[in-house]
Nucleic acid binder design. Structure first.
Lengths: 138, 138
DNA sequence: AGCTAGCGTAACTTTTTTTGTGACGGATTC
DNA sequence: GAATCCGTCACAAAAAAAGTTACGCTAGCT
């Protein structure tokens, strides 16, 4: 997978660290070290999943749409659009090769199982956990 | 992750389907639908892990180095060099952002846990299983 | 009302990653 | 000693991801 998931968790944790405040995409981008548009794209997906809410215009910005203890990393992954941890090889196998013809279906089964266990792992973690681990003192 | 893992499983299953025979990288490449060099690169890694053996010269080629029932997909993944299912975002976070500074370490913990559960899932499957599922009649 | 700050999104560019190719040396069998 | 097949490097092409520019829209402010 790509690094979008990491960025998304970063953003959400940042929002969790400043409750009561709205953060602008520009501010977040500076914290994360990238471009505001990249941030907005991520947040647009997270908003579709009702994890964050945005407000335009002056004084606007982003905030969490719910208690960070109720946002799991599984939800984040789902919100970003589940891209399998593994990818099928895309080459067309030789038509006479029975292994080539059949392997994809079998691999799909395997990957589904793997995906489920990835999700199970991610479900254990919340944004509140992330924040807690970063600032154990607070 | 990329599709190399899928290709590797494909290759190994193909070798398992023709015991007693050596297959050339050219033949395998035709079955998989790619270039022989790509195949050789993959197999070179699998050989380092003692999963396959090769022989040069005329009549040469590749074969499994052990019983396909003793090759797990976990071993395959390890052989290819474990690349985490997730990737860290590489941008330097803003130095004043405590979340940005700390998030990586926490994410690393999460990803380690995920990786372990991926490996646990993959350990359940062997190349013999793959073959069995493709050709239930044999 | 008009100005400003901020999001929303499409189109495009750049960068990075992955995959594929060509070439050629070395080894082994025949 | 000629043919076959691996081993590997260097390069090319393609695909994917990330970053950038631009501009419309809305809500608040004065």
């Amino acid at each position: 997978m790509n690094s979008r998931f990491s960025t998304a968790v970063h953003i959400l944790t940042l929002l969790a660290s400043t409750p009561q405040e709205r953060l602008t995409s520009e501010f977040i981008a500076a914290s994360v070290g990238t471009n505001p548009v990249v941030i907005r794209r991520q947040l647009a997906l997270l908003r579709q999943a009702n994890l964050v809410s945005s407000k335009g215009a002056r004084g606007g910005g982003w905030e969490l749409a719910r208690d960070p203890a109720r946002i799991t990393l599984k939800q984040v992954r789902t919100a970003l659009g589940v891209e399998a941890a593994f990818r099928m090889h895309r080459n067309e196998p030789h038509p006479n090769c029975s292994v080539g013809q059949g392997i994809r279906g079998v691999l799909e089964n395997v990957y589904e199982e793997v995906e489920k266990s990835v999700m199970r792992s991610l479900a254990h973690w919340t944004i509140a956990d992330m924040l807690k681990r970063i600032e154990p003192s607070s």
